[in-house]
């Protein structure tokens, strides 16, 4: 695959040139952290970050998203009918997304784009987006991407892989979509520069390794009934931080909100950490305790997903949930426990 050299002094100009064809999204520093947002005309993404506080998932899957609009006014012909909200599907490009966050979209895609149903909003937003990722030259101590089927230079979720090489970027063209974006920016200086050495160097800096190889060999019920959940869940506050910051968590809630005679049906991120998530109308709650909910989160990511798709865990190893958990619940430790679990006689049943 081709590698293009982009001199950093051509960076702003190229983006400006391409901005007629793309809406750009990128990391921007706000208060104490970086987060993704749509860039204003002429605004540059700030690449002076290790990773954004929240993942880039909101670019494709906003925390609050309008689905339909409706009128309750019986004088209008189409009252009480749901009409799809108009969305801006113009081509977009996410600049500086880390490889972990980009590959997360591939894991999430299995949920939103499957043989039976396609989620129109997610699919359209995803398909209209070009992912120009930024390789991680200095991964954090809490990153474990290489254990999660990903890596600091991983290309599989990307259209272009940008590597910061001091006074220039090396841009590896991964897909046709990526080639088009580079062309639109007028970056075309091909180079035979080798990024493999940089990649090896970055991978060697990953210090966390989490074994996942034995998860698939255990039955759901063995892991579900394992004795360690009470201890693992004790500290959990059941806040939604881990799920909201996670690039691979996709759960959502659907709500109608009316003002006067009109309103919208929207969806909002939701979290398996909240009791309300599964509460029946009758008052019965199938996941009524904190232990149920914590177990659900880890079982989903590390067992149900593994079994359902047969292609690894629902995690890219970005480490956000570890860094942001107010009580230091560490998915690496739980994964180790699950992976090495040997069922014992006398474990509680169900």
């Amino acid at each position: 695959m081709k590698v293009i050299k982009i001199d950093k002094k051509d960076w702003a100009g190229g983006l400006d040139k391409a901005s007629s064809g793309y809406r750009f999204f990128g990391p921007v520093e706000d208060k104490e952290c970086h987060n993704f947002k749509e860039l204003d005309k002429g605004e540059l993404p700030d690449f002076n970050f290790s990773n954004t506080r929240l993942s880039a998932k909101s670019v494709v899957f906003p925390q609050t998203e309008a689905m339909f609009e409706y009128s309750l006014d019986e004088n209008e012909a189409d009252h009480h009918l749901m009409k799809e909200c108009r969305k801006n599907d113009a081509p977009r490009a996410v600049l500086g997304i880390r490889p972990c966050d980009a590959s997360a979209f591939l894991l999430v895609k299995r949920n939103f784009d499957n043989p039976e149903y396609r989620d129109p909003w997610w699919v359209k937003a995803y398909e209209s987006t070009t992912f120009a990722g930024l390789a991680c030259n200095n991964p954090c101590a809490s990153c474990f991407c290489t254990s999660a089927g990903c890596g600091p230079f991983d290309e599989k979720g990307l259209d272009v892989l940008l590597v910061d090489a001091g006074d220039h970027f090396l841009a590896k063209v991964v897909t046709e979509k990526g080639r088009k974006m580079l062309a639109a920016a007028g970056w075309n200086a091909e180079t035979d520069a080798d990024i493999e050495a940089l990649k090896k160097d970055a991978e060697s800096k990953i210090s966390s390794f989490v074994p996942t190889d034995k998860l698939k060999d255990k039955t759901t019920m063995e892991l579900y009934n394992a004795a360690f959940w009470e201890e693992a869940a004790f500290a959990c506050l059941n806040c939604g931080t881990c799920t909201y910051s996670c690039p691979t968590c996709w759960c959502f809630d659907i709500q109608d909100e009316s003002k006067g005679k009109s309103g919208i049906r929207m969806r909002n991120w939701d979290s398996c950490m909240y009791p309300l998530f599964t509460l029946h109308g009758s008052g019965h709650n199938p996941r009524g305790t904190k232990i149920h909910r914590v177990r659900q989160r880890f079982m989903h990511k590390l067992k149900y997903y593994v079994d359902k798709y047969g292609d690894g865990i629902q995690c890219v190893g970005c480490g956000r949930c570890i860094r942001l958990c107010p009580v230091n619940i560490d998915i690496r430790k739980i994964c180790e426990k699950m992976n090495s679990y040997e069922p014992k006689a006398g474990d509680c049943n169900r």
């Binding site: 906003p62 609050t64 998203e65 309008a66 909100e257 009109s262 309103g263 919208i264 929207m266």
Partner: peptide, 8 residues
């Protein structure tokens, strides 16, 4: 005062 939800 909430006019209408500001949403994506």
């Amino acid at each position: 005062v909430k006019t209408n939800v500001k949403v994506a």
